[in-house]
């Protein structure tokens, strides 16, 4: 399994590099697509089939199509010849390097446990809630055996309902804004 993970990780990293380093926008887009698929397989390996399907359906099947159309209808030969934004390259490199180091540091410092965050929050809040949290946990363990979509839906619609709804509001606002901008140009 670890071997597969290394293979996939290397593949995804290569695809990501391809996205950034390629001069031809269409090659970038195709490597991005390959990267999305790689991430989807990674999810499958983690037994998160639902997330994998959603990844493929939404990102690879939906968003990449739009990207590709956008790229296809620009004059990619001319785009390839123009050197874009080269003055930003070095600052961006250092910024990303800093971000990478910071994330690595955080990952290195954090300890991974099997306990989901809900329980830890409950433990912190007090013994009173611990019992209810534990029953919730037991329920979740039962769910884990049951089915993958159910887990996702429980997470989305019970545990994290407010963030979920907030995200949907955000997306709606973004859609409206996009329509507004597009209308203005026409």
């Amino acid at each position: 399994m670890a071997f597969l993970w290394i293979l996939l990780a290397a593949f995804i990293a290569a695809c990501a590099l391809g996205v950034v380093l390629s001069r031809s926008p269409i090659t970038s887009a195709v490597s991005l697509l390959a990267g999305f698929l790689g991430v989807g397989i990674l999810y499958l390996c983690l037994r998160a089939e639902f997330v994998a399907a959603a990844q493929v359906l939404v990102y690879a099947g939906g968003i990449m199509v739009l990207y590709l159309i956008g790229v296809m209808f620009t004059d990619s030969e001319a785009l390839r010849l123009t050197r874009q934004a080269h003055f930003q390259a070095w600052p961006a490199f250092f910024l990303v390097l800093a971000l990478f180091l910071w994330m690595g540091h955080r990952l290195y410092r954090s300890e991974f446990t099997a306990e989901p965050p809900v329980l830890r929050v409950a433990v912190a809040a007090g013994a009173d809630q611990e019992a209810s949290a534990k029953t919730a946990l037991a329920e979740r363990a039962g769910l884990a055996k049951e089915s993958n979509p159910r887990q996702v839906s429980v997470a989305l619609f019970r545990d994290f309902l407010y963030p979920f709804e907030a995200a949907s509001v955000l997306l709606t606002v973004a859609v409206l804004g996009g329509v507004f901008l597009a209308k203005k140009e026409v």
Binding site: F50, A53, A54, L57, A60, P149
Partner: peptide, 11 residues
């Protein structure tokens, strides 16, 4: 698999 039809749509 659990998400049969979803997999069909995705693929």
């Amino acid at each position: 698999v659990d998400l049969g039809i979803l997999l069909v749509l995705a693929v």
